[in-house]
């Protein structure tokens, strides 16, 4: 399980809680890198969540821990097919979202931080981490537009829609703390 970097490429993580803003910022960042960039590695490259969304609605919804494990499986896919090959070729690759967005959401949902750190230890640390600040809380975004939106949609299906608002607030707090500790740099959406 690789944790460090043995390549000449650069891994740029873009974290945040709003899927559409994250995607737009990642695309802009990748364009700005010019020829040295190999593109954006986005959430659900493996199609796991697309398939999950199409599952029989009668089946019980996934729990927060199950969703986090599935995100980790999707990230393992992205690392194998998108991120590591780009790094090995000496390119810069933008991963949006990467580890911290899932950590923020898992932590907001009450999962132990220690478990989240251990779970994602297979993912190499990024060379640089940006955080897309939320312009405002959008309530109308589609569940398919980002991981947080999907996660909240799955949780909402359990009944209380206020739960997703609380989750988002806590996830933003997590990223705010990260920013204060200078573990990520703010990026305007």
């Amino acid at each position: 399980m690789a944790v460090g970097h043995a390549t000449s490429g650069r891994l740029i993580a873009v974290e945040g809680t709003c899927g559409p803003d994250l995607a737009a910022a990642a695309k802009r960042l990748s364009r700005g890198l010019g020829d040295g960039a190999s593109g954006v590695s986005a959430w659900d490259a493996s199609g796991i969540f697309t398939e999950l969304a199409a599952a029989d609605p009668q089946v019980a919804r996934p729990t927060t821990r199950t969703l986090t494990l599935l995100y980790a499986a999707d990230l393992a896919f992205r690392l194998r097919w998108q991120i590591r090959p780009a790094l090995d070729a000496g390119h810069a690759v933008v991963a949006a979202p990467y580890v911290q967005s899932a950590m923020a959401l898992g932590s907001a949902a009450g999962l132990p931080t220690r478990w989240l750190i251990e779970l994602f230890r297979f993912a190499p640390a990024p060379h640089v981490c940006y955080r897309v600040r939320e312009r405002r809380l959008r309530s109308s975004v589609q569940a398919a537009s980002g991981y947080l939106e999907f996660f909240c949609g799955a949780i909402d299906a359990g009944g209380d829609p206020r739960q997703s608002a609380r989750l988002r607030t806590r996830a933003i707090d997590f990223l705010d703390r990260l920013e204060r500790r200078r573990r990520c740099t703010p990026l305007t959406a």
């Binding site: 796991i48 398939e51 999950l52 029989d56 494990l69 599935l70 980790a72």
Partner: peptide, 28 residues
């Protein structure tokens, strides 16, 4: 499980799983 088994089955058929993905999907 009715939710995750189809995801695993499709990826096994495509022989598309790394050891990490294999582990994480079964854990889910």
């Amino acid at each position: 499980s009715p939710l995750i088994k189809p995801l695993v089955k499709a990826r096994k058929q495509a022989r598309a799983l790394s050891p990490e993905e294999f582990c994480l999907l079964h854990a889910a």
